[in-house]
Design a protein around this nucleic acid. Structure first.
Lengths: 134, 134
DNA sequence: TTATTATAGACACATGAAGTCTTTGATTGG
DNA sequence: CCAATCAAAGACTTCATGTGTCTATAATAA
């Protein structure tokens, strides 16, 4: 029961892209260097963010990744859902959800966490302070 | 990023033990039958609950597992921590926590979930309704 | 002493995370 | 058109963990 490292990479990469002002495409090589991770691995993660509609990609020379849509709207939950998926954290007695009170409590708790991740926008954190990539 | 099946088994077993009134020892065979899981596997899970101080065990004939302490105090979080451990769900830039704002947000979100699991007592759910084991 | 019951550990298996490598496809610049 | 650049996709490896099973050991009651 842990968030994957991929989620960590995705959050830091998105934080960087949101924090810097110019919205020109960034190469995966450059982004990977900042986190000490291989470019090919990071590209697999970023592709998930592309498919989720958070960023867009451009092939060819001077291509790379760029924010898509309004940077103010992107929440922590958007990125986490893109990487981890949207399935519930708790599976109970074979998807007969409504009857199981235990399942209900677990879902409420999970919603409590997601609510905070949904309300917290990346840009709010980016504005507080941005020192490099950490 | 999912809760283990072991947590599910632990929650249902504890819910059963809290719901039934007589506090006589229950054998693992009996408890395992209700959930369709092997006794030896369930015993490994219950041993964690013993070490966490939630229940106590007795060997020998007419032995088994029994609630320890006050049944009203046991929360969902107690059981989850006993099975899953108490480590944070999110690991960031090498445990240099305080500086990373992303880590801070993730911790706050996790605390939101834990708060709900801590405030919800097993007995509250047990009193609502208890139909068999689900 | 024997039957019963929990505990512990070794073991096997499946799954998913984490990462590498290679090929393909798209785009730009000359 | 050609070559360089860059993302996308898939096969593959490795490792850790969850999920069990099985057996032996220890404790307790009749």
């Amino acid at each position: 029961m842990k968030y994957s490292k991929a989620t960590n990479y995705a959050l830091h990469t998105m934080m960087y892209m949101i924090a810097i002002e110019p919205n020109s495409p960034l190469g995966v090589q450059q982004l990977a260097d900042k986190q000490g991770v291989s470019p090919t691995y990071l590209s697999k993660i970023l592709t998930k963010l592309v498919k989720a509609g958070l960023i867009e990609s451009a092939s060819g020379a001077h291509g790379g990744y760029r924010l898509k849509g309004k940077r103010e709207d992107i929440s922590f939950l958007d990125i986490i859902h893109a990487v981890e998926g949207t399935a519930s954290l708790f599976e109970c007695c074979g998807s007969e959800d409504s009857k199981c009170l235990i399942h209900g409590v677990m879902l409420e708790a999970e919603e409590g966490m997601e609510q905070h991740l949904k309300n917290t926008k990346m840009i709010d954190v980016a504005r507080k302070r941005f020192s490099g990539i950490s």
